[in-house]
Design a protein around this nucleic acid. Structure first.
Length: 438
DNA sequence: TCTGGGGTCCTAGGACCC
DNA sequence: TCTGGGGTCCTAGGACCC
């Protein structure tokens, strides 16, 4: 059995814990740069405003007091998420954090949950439950988890149980709509799948439903029943795995959280369009520094990077321009990276254009000391991990992000910096932002 | 005027090897 | 007229997730 615990309207719920005025109101959390709605309260959803609606279209309704908005405060959400996961680690046999607001768990065995009270003879996972669906020990367990998270962290969650992750996702969605927030997928999910559009199945996105419709596959049950060959031809082995999961056969590999990422990146849209070379240089230096710090947290060196900028175009969108740079030696030192890519920023810049965003992607990531192909004619000594930046990271961890930085990131007005006009405090991670109780 | 950021996986096709 | 077979690696593009 697999459980999925998922925070309801997660970012909004985090904001409400520390700002009680938001409770019961239509409120949304905005994307970076106060661009568009990325998390909405139930009251906000009830007004029919879809996910992703641009903020500027709703500003007038904020002015009248009808709607409320928050800038995104990832430091707060990340910390609330860690608190929930730590509760789950206490209560479950295994926890796989899937995203900032959801985690798959392995619940204790039925035997352990049932406490023998109900004469549980067989607690085998996968056996047909002898309990009616409203009285399964899983439901009681789910309610207990939910209550503990609500009381200790203040976030309402939905909990779903099923034999596979894909079915657990569906169970979770149903759970969220129930008063107790919990749902156990019945042994025969036909009725549920028959009333679920394919587009709502985890792993089926925006494009596949169009292709599936052509083969008369509209509901999750029709997807479940479709021949393997048809499914493969429409969505490859990825979709076939999803279908297997719907049939109750686990096909999702457990994600390895210790595994090193393939790429590490950082990019931001500008608060106001940039037109100067300095803005491009400073922003790229700043994003490189942030991504490099991420790299060092993973204990990785990058062999090269891709820098890019997006140009404003009339009617939205906009072209990307980019350059690929190989570092002389794999490195995690921000200053060496800056030295390597700075000339390329100049090459990217065209006076007169308005730039929307810049970004950097590090690739060719490796552990220091890992065997690698070296350059026969290169005389540069291989660098290990940077001691300088170990110190920089320690200082920034102690005194706050961005306290120590490269002058290349800009020491004047950073006109390119993103807008976050409605940022809440970070009362769980900053001493100087603790709540005041009168 | 104004619409986020950070990832993963799979597939097809091309270039190359012997 | 008729031109092999078995493989690897890389990249771009498409799809998906939150």
């Amino acid at each position: 059995m697999i459980g999925l615990v998922d925070g309801n309207n997660f970012f909004v719920s985090c904001e409400r814990v520390f700002n009680r005025k938001l409770v019961g109101r239509p409120v949304a959390v905005l994307s970076n740069n106060d661009g568009c709605c990325v998390s909405r309260s139930n009251e906000f959803k009830a007004l029919g405003i879809p996910m992703g609606t641009p903020y500027f279209q709703l500003k007038n309704r904020e002015a009248t007091g009808e709607l409320s908005f928050c800038s995104s405060n990832y430091e707060l959400y990340g910390d609330m998420s860690r608190r929930i996961v730590s509760i789950l680690r206490d209560e479950a046999v295994d926890v796989e954090q899937y995203s900032i607001d959801e985690a798959f768990i392995t619940p204790p065995s039925l035997e352990a949950l049932g406490n023998g009270e109900r004469g549980m003879g067989n607690g085998e996972i996968g056996s047909r439950s002898p309990f009616p669906i409203t009285h399964s020990p899983y439901l009681a367990y789910g309610r207990r988890l939910r209550a503990k998270i609500l009381r200790w962290v203040g976030i309402p969650c939905g909990v779903g149980f099923a034999p596979t992750k894909t079915l657990a996702k569906i169970a979770n969605h149903i759970g969220k709509k129930r008063p107790d927030g919990v749902f156990l997928m019945p042994d025969d999910p036909t009725e549920i799948l028959a009333s679920l559009p394919v587009g709502e199945v985890w792993g089926v996105g925006r494009r596949l439903p169009v292709k599936l419709r052509a083969s008369r596959i509209i509901t999750a049950q029709q997807l479940h029943d479709a021949p393997d060959a048809t499914i493969r031809s429409i969505g490859g082995v990825t979709l076939l795995r999803t279908v297997m999961e719907l049939r109750g056969i686990p096909c999702c590999e457990e994600k390895d959280y210790d595994a090193a990422p393939d790429t590490v990146s950082c990019s931001r849209s500008f608060g106001t369009p940039a037109t100067t070379l300095e803005a491009l240089e400073e922003s790229m230096a700043s994003f490189a520094a942030q991504a490099a710090a991420k790299l060092r947290r993973h204990g990785l060196l990058a062999s090269g990077c891709n820098i890019y900028a997006q140009i404003f175009a009339a009617g939205g969108g906009g072209d990307f321009v980019g350059r690929t740079v190989a570092f002389p030696v794999p490195t995690d030192a921000t200053n060496e990276m800056l030295r390597a890519f700075r000339p390329e920023v100049t090459a990217l810049y065209t006076p007169g254009l308005r730039y929307r965003k810049t970004g950097i992607v590090f690739f060719g990531l490796e552990k220091p000391g890992a065997p690698r192909q070296t350059d026969l004619f290169d005389t540069t000594p291989p660098t290990g991990r940077s001691r300088l930046y170990k110190a920089v990271d320690a200082l920034n961890a102690r005194y706050g992000k961005g306290k120590v930085f490269s002058a290349a990131e800009g020491i004047g007005q950073r006109s390119w910096q993103m807008k976050r006009s409605k940022l809440s405090k970070r009362p769980t991670t900053r001493w100087n932002e603790l709540m005041t109780v009168r």
